[in-house]
């Protein structure tokens, strides 16, 4: 029987770390507050750049970690530091003594209603990226189902790179997500005009640029550079977007049937509490603080406490998975060094 390892969070980072730790011969304990594994990815439909079904990714990972101790609908109640490790109490009453804790607590989607000027929760035809994925998965959303959708807009950077929204960080994945969703919508509504309102397009990842070119050349998505200033609603229930086309230098007003807000990534609020139990502070960007941000991004100043995934900032799924593998190795090395 090897040492206990507690993984907080059953998203991609937690699952991949658990998978690697199982391969290394450990039997990690994974706690997840919701009733299913997979985190935010489980709510998604298809993943860029190859349109891999998100469910498939989650299913594969779940399959491979079935030997781990997994507690669903369970949270960390408190953590006590002990001489040789930590005593972790879960909300289901289980008490564990472990040597290493991995905080794979992920992110919260920015609450789009906080940007009141975009009218989420006020106007009928405004939704978020997550709502749209939900519709892709279920086909059930009164904003789209049965509606005659002729014009669709995507607003980039909602709650990202926005000091007034309290988050100055780039959420990294929304540019490509918006392009992906724009193309998917174009497929479903071939006659519709699709607009993306962006301030920059940050297409850094594998095949992202191809996606962008394809969106313009094949799908005919219109890209308008300029931040949306305000959104209003007309008597027909359509939304009117006011923006500036900064490339032509003209103000623009576009009436749309559907507006999708690309809500950004902010630090998981509950994770902040859990992290404080093991003295992991918050960095100036609002995410959990690593030992340093070059080589030790998965380690903390608290002994035996590790980080992986979006707990330390916005990341793509491949980045998260890579970090999870790295953290598994780091935990292994740590435990070996402790013997």
């Amino acid at each position: 029987m090897k040492d206990n390892i507690v993984i907080v969070g059953g998203g991609i980072a937690g699952m991949e770390a658990a998978r690697q730790l199982l391969l290394l011969g450990y039997k990690p304990i994974l706690v997840e507050k919701s009733d299913h594994l997979g985190g935010h990815v489980a709510d998604w439909h298809c993943l860029f750049p190859d349109m891999t079904p998100a469910q498939q990714v989650v299913k594969d990972l779940t399959e491979q970690i079935k030997d781990a101790n997994i507690f669903l609908e369970t949270e960390v109640s408190f953590i006590n530091k002990m001489k040789m490790g930590y005593n972790v109490m879960f909300s289901n009453g289980v008490n564990v003594i472990c040597k290493a804790i991995l905080l794979a607590t992920g992110f919260d989607l920015f609450d789009a209603s906080k940007k009141e000027e975009y009218g989420y929760g006020i106007y009928d035809q405004v939704m978020t990226n997550k709502d749209l994925e939900h519709w892709f998965n279920t086909g059930d959303d009164k904003r789209i189902t049965g509606k005659d959708i002729k014009k669709i807009g995507f607003v980039h950077c909602v709650g990202s790179r926005d000091v007034k929204a309290g988050n100055q960080q780039c959420s990294k994945v929304c540019c490509i997500t918006a392009i992906k969703q724009a193309m998917e919508m174009k497929e479903r509504f071939p006659d519709a005009e699709v607009y993306c309102f962006y301030m920059d397009l940050r297409l850094f990842g594998k095949k992202y640029e191809d996606f962008y070119i394809k969106a313009q050349m094949e799908s005919g998505v219109h890209f308008i550079r300029g931040r949306v200033s305000e959104v209003s609603e007309n008597l027909q229930g359509q939304v009117i977007v006011k923006t500036e086309d900064t490339l032509s230098g003209k103000p623009a007003k576009i009436t749309l049937d559907l507006l999708v807000l690309m809500a950004g990534i902010v630090c998981n609020r509950e994770a902040v509490q859990t992290a404080s139990m093991v003295q992991v502070p918050i960095d100036s960007d609002g995410f959990l603080k690593s030992r340093d941000n070059i080589l030790n991004i998965i380690e903390t100043d608290s002994k035996g406490v590790f980080l992986a995934g979006t707990a330390t900032g916005a990341k793509t799924i491949p980045e998260t998975a890579a970090e999870a593998r790295a953290v598994a190795l780091a935990i292994h090395n740590y435990l070996v060094s402790q013997q």
Binding site: E116, E117, E230, S232, E233
Partner: peptide, 9 residues
């Protein structure tokens, strides 16, 4: 108020 449409509504 245009930026806080809940009020005009």
């Amino acid at each position: 108020t245009q930026l806080t449409p809940a009020i005009s509504r």
